[in-house]
Amino acid sequence: MTSETDQTAFRHALAEVPGFIYHNGLRLALISLAWTLASLPLVTIGPVTLAAYVAIRDLRSDCNRIDWDNVWTVLRQNGVASALFSGIPVAFGAVAVTYGVTALRQGSLAGELVALMAAYVALYVALALIPTYVKLAHGTDPVAAFRYGVSWLAHHPTPALAMGLLTVVVLAVTAVLTIAFVLLFAGIAFSIQVAVVESVDERIGETTVTENSRRKPRASGRG
């Protein structure tokens, strides 16, 4: 049931993203531009990614506008945590590259194993951070948000991997032209990620409500 729900939610999310991008193209382009410029110091990638998630959630809301007060409020609350979280996959990725290069030069099996383990952890955390950042964008406590992200990845590995692959595809396509990357990558990639996470949660919630209603005991009808 969960697998079928995940697939349905994923397809639903992908179906709504093109229309969302079409109706918010200019604002998403500005979000992408701001994200690219603000990410240049590298250490700011976490907070600016969080800000982009909040802005995209605002555009997906009924108001369909960016609430800058909400963006700043979330950044003040979770900006530091987002910066720390973003450093985890980078750190493990650096370990993987360092040990991998050394192992190839020296022919060390132990080094190769460490590199593979570090690369796996980096990939796992990177995927878990997608739902984590969506939750942080809600203003959720950082610890609770990270637990949610890890749990979400464990329960929904298929849409998580699909999101990761789509993000890589969007990166590869937009990176061909520098201007396309600057104006399109963040807006498209983050729109897909937010849509998939929220769509899966909505579908799971609907399924849970339906199952609970079916499990309610029937009245016996006796006086």
Rank of each mutant, 00 (worst) to 15 (best):
T208Q: 09
A81G: 05
T158K: 06
L75W: 09
S108Y: 11
A38Y: 13
Y133L: 10
A51N: 09
L26N: 02
A38G: 08
A186S: 11
V197H: 03
A29M: 15
G79N: 05
S3Y: 13
Q106N: 14
P41M: 04
V143Q: 10
N70A: 12
V196P: 00
A34G: 13
E202P: 06
V114N: 11
I88C: 01
L166S: 06
S213Q: 13
D141T: 02
V209F: 02
A118Q: 09
N24Y: 13
A38P: 07
T167H: 01
L129Q: 07
R203I: 00
A15W: 00
F92P: 03
L177M: 06
L50T: 04
A180L: 11
V71K: 08
S86A: 08
R105I: 15
F181I: 01
R218W: 11
L116D: 09
V182A: 05
K216R: 15
L123F: 15
A180F: 07
M1V: 06
I204Q: 01
V121P: 12
D58Y: 05
R147V: 00
M1P: 02
D69V: 05
A172N: 01
I188Q: 03
F181V: 03
H12Y: 05
T44F: 04
S213E: 14
F146L: 12
R76S: 08
F146R: 03
A118R: 10
L161Y: 03
L37Q: 10
D67W: 01
I56Y: 07
A219D: 14
Q77F: 10
S191T: 07
I88Q: 01
M117I: 15
V209N: 10
L37D: 02
